[in-house]
């Protein structure tokens, strides 16, 4: 036991040698747990991804680019465009509405109970997505939804006016339900980092509120806002369950197209599905890299 006390340490504080009472056997467990985790990740995360990449460039005769080139085909371009439009629209709504909500909620004039209510509701709503969210909106704005019926009894037939929940507009409204709270959660720390001294100094120098935001607030916040926008874009871009439950795949999105290929609902080959998935992964890598770069820029201001 006393050997433990004399265990030599490296300068950086990392334990150099295990206590003799444990010996080599004491190291087997730690390294096998680490090994198991990495092996699982390699087998069930990395290998399937590599498999998709390989599958998207191979056919019976070996290497081919025809599946990647097929991504330029008409219906796939439509799916790409729908996915991108939906992601941009819902991310823009999320950034603007979520940003404003967060701004007003952290104001000192805000009652503290209301502030914590908004924070906890954001946590719930940001995680309440997928199939249950879709049916919550069907109950509200579907053809038989309570709001639709209520408006109809008031003489406003929103479906007669051209609205449909099962359209791009409808999907955007539904996606906003998780995008806005996501934004509230992501942007609140950045807003709290805006120091009151800057605001006070600018007011002392005679700046109006508009001038403060145009010349100080927004430039400081901009990297955080861009990073948040890109993260929201990614969250909508990779969403599948919500769209599927709402439209049964009738609106072509990248995710629903991949699912259609997987379930054999369309005549496309598995390689087309793999190529689509690879396309998605490429976009998401871009999302991660760009948002990390902007959030590094934003962290200059965090003390």
């Amino acid at each position: 036991m006393s050997q433990a006390a004399t265990t030599p340490l490296r300068r950086d504080g990392v334990v150099h040698k295990r206590p003799a009472s444990q010996g080599v056997a004491g190291l087997i467990l730690p390294y096998s747990v680490i090994g198991l985790f990495i092996a699982l990740a390699a087998l069930f995360m990395a290998a399937p991804t590599v498999m998709l990449a390989v599958q998207s460039v191979t056919d019976d005769h070996g290497f081919t680019l025809k599946y990647l080139e097929a991504l330029g085909g008409d219906n796939i371009v439509v799916a790409f465009r729908n996915s991108i439009v939906l992601s941009i629209a819902s991310a823009a709504i999320g950034v603007v509405a979520g940003g404003l909500i967060a701004y007003f909620v952290i104001s000192p004039a805000m009652p503290i109970t209301l502030r914590s209510a908004v924070t906890s509701f954001s946590a719930v709503a940001a995680n309440f997505a997928g199939v249950p969210l879709a049916f919550a909106f069907v109950s509200t704005l579907g053809t038989l939804g309570m709001l639709t019926q209520g408006l109809r009894s008031l003489g406003v037939d929103i479906y007669g006016l051209g609205f449909s929940l099962f359209s791009m507009t409808g999907l955007t409204i539904v996606y906003a339900y998780f995008q806005i709270p996501l934004m509230v959660i992501i942007i609140t720390p950045a807003l709290l980092a805006l120091r009151t001294e800057w605001r006070e100094s600018s007011e002392n120098l005679g700046a109006t509120s508009g001038q403060y935001w145009r010349m100080i607030g927004l430039p400081v916040l901009l990297p955080s806002l861009i990073s948040a926008f890109i993260l929201l874009f990614g969250s909508a871009f990779s969403a599948y369950a919500t769209a599927y439950a709402l439209t049964s795949g009738n609106i072509a999105l990248l995710t629903t197209e991949i699912a259609n290929v997987l379930s054999g609902d369309v005549s496309s080959s598995p390689q087309t599905g793999a190529a689509l998935a690879v396309g998605m992964i490429v976009v998401m890598v871009g999302v991660l890299v760009i948002s990390a770069a902007f959030s590094r820029r934003a962290s200059r201001w965090h003390k």
Binding site: P48, T49, L262, A274, I281, M284
Partner: peptide
């Protein structure tokens, strides 16, 4: 985060 669920499930089922 980079490999969306629908892409991972595609890879897994292959």
């Amino acid at each position: 985060f980079v490999v969306p669920a629908i892409a991972l499930v595609a890879g897994l089922s292959v």
